[in-house]
Simulated assay, not measured.
Amino acid sequence: MEEESTKFMFHFDRHFPINDVGEIGQRLAASDALIPGWIPPAVGPFDIRAVAVDQQLHGWSTTILPDRNIVSRMARVAREGIVSKRDHPMNIAILLMAFAQAVDFEIEPGLAFHELAQRETNRAAQEELCWFRTADKGGMAQSWIDLAVGRCSGIALGDAAPVENIDLSTPIRRWCRNYVAALKIAELELLPIRPLEKLMALLNWMTHEFFLASPALFFAARYWAPSLRRAGLVKHIRAPNRDRALAGARNAAWDITYLSEFVRRIAIGLSNEQRVILATGDRLLAEVAPILLLGPEAQEGRPSVEEVMRVWWSDSSASRFCAAFFDAVQFAERNDVDDHTIAERVSNLTIKGEESLRMWLPKRQS
């Protein structure tokens, strides 16, 4: 049977900078900083033709979930006007804002400002949010495009938007749960056992004492991968100052929360025709995110979970873990989690986990 092919013809306004937007889309695709939450067409998710088909033919909208690395630089461009240093996150921030404004993608920065409020103050988060609103205001697509393609080194966006009277410092439930998982990862990291034993212990703990938190589990799987670079995933766990260790666990919890929010929004988006893209300036986080979209079997050009795990771990370790993981998935599907029970469990496990991390002492050098 011959495959059917469909041809589309789209008309763009003659003033639309299609060549510039096409170049920006290619650079974003090559950056590996953006993870689409769906299986994109062969031309890629940032090809202007793919965007036009999604929006005009299928009626899909697209939301970008950026991390702090990206959001803070978008706000900085608006505040300072001049871009003096273009590191990896800054390049992504500029390209992404230009592309989003050109093709009408929405940027949802909420998590990033909750993170900033926790790290610093609610006031600091509110002030940076004002500058982000200025960066994200409509009608400035061409200015961002000119900045993105190098026609200029600065951009004039005006004053900061009015302050929004919202409390961004209140802990969010998703982060609180991921903090418990991060504390457990830190506790296991400090045990004198092999990496695979740590990973299997984490899976067993989630199955029987917590709940199956796949983003945290695969974050840990990448962290403990024996032969891969892991610097930066969980910081200061062995610091003599145990407050720094707790700060490292909190930081890891935010990374995991971006992953879990990405997965949550993908599930919600299926029912309201909304695409989701995770944007991160953290190269290791960008490695973890795609595995959360995979299943036990390869499909539609995507590998299976085990195939990716075999890149991170040995074949035997990957097989052992994946068999246990998918058994745990079936167990979780048969056993619903009571939100009231979880809330109490999270509170108790947080106290226990923090105490465990505080009590650890580095071995003295002989």
Rank of each mutant, 00 (worst) to 15 (best):
P192F: 11
P192T: 03
I193R: 06
R194T: 04
L196V: 02
E197R: 06
K198W: 12
L199R: 08
M200W: 03
A201T: 06
L202Q: 07
L202N: 03
L203T: 05
N204K: 15
N204P: 00
M206D: 02
T207F: 06
H208G: 03
E209H: 11
F211A: 13
L212Y: 10
A213W: 10
L217G: 02
A221D: 06
R222T: 04
Y223F: 15
R229S: 14
G232Y: 15
G232W: 14
L233V: 04
A239L: 03
N241I: 08
R244G: 00
A245E: 10
A245N: 09
L246N: 05
L246W: 10
R250P: 06
A253S: 14
W254S: 00
D255L: 13
I256F: 15
T257I: 10
L259P: 10
L259F: 15
L259I: 12
S260P: 13
E261F: 12
E261C: 09
F262W: 12
R264M: 14
R264E: 15
R264Q: 11
I266Q: 07
A267V: 00
G269M: 11
G269Y: 10
G269V: 09
Q274I: 00
V276Q: 06
L278F: 07
G281A: 01
G281H: 01
D282K: 01
R283A: 13
L284Y: 03
A286V: 04
V288N: 05
A289E: 12
I291M: 08
G295Y: 03
A298M: 11
A298S: 14
G301R: 01
R302Q: 13
E306Y: 03
W313S: 02
S317I: 05
S317F: 11
A318F: 09
S319P: 00
C322R: 02
C322S: 11
C322P: 00
A323I: 00
A323S: 06
F325S: 01
F325N: 00
F325L: 03
F326D: 03
V329A: 05
E333V: 00
E333L: 09
E333S: 08
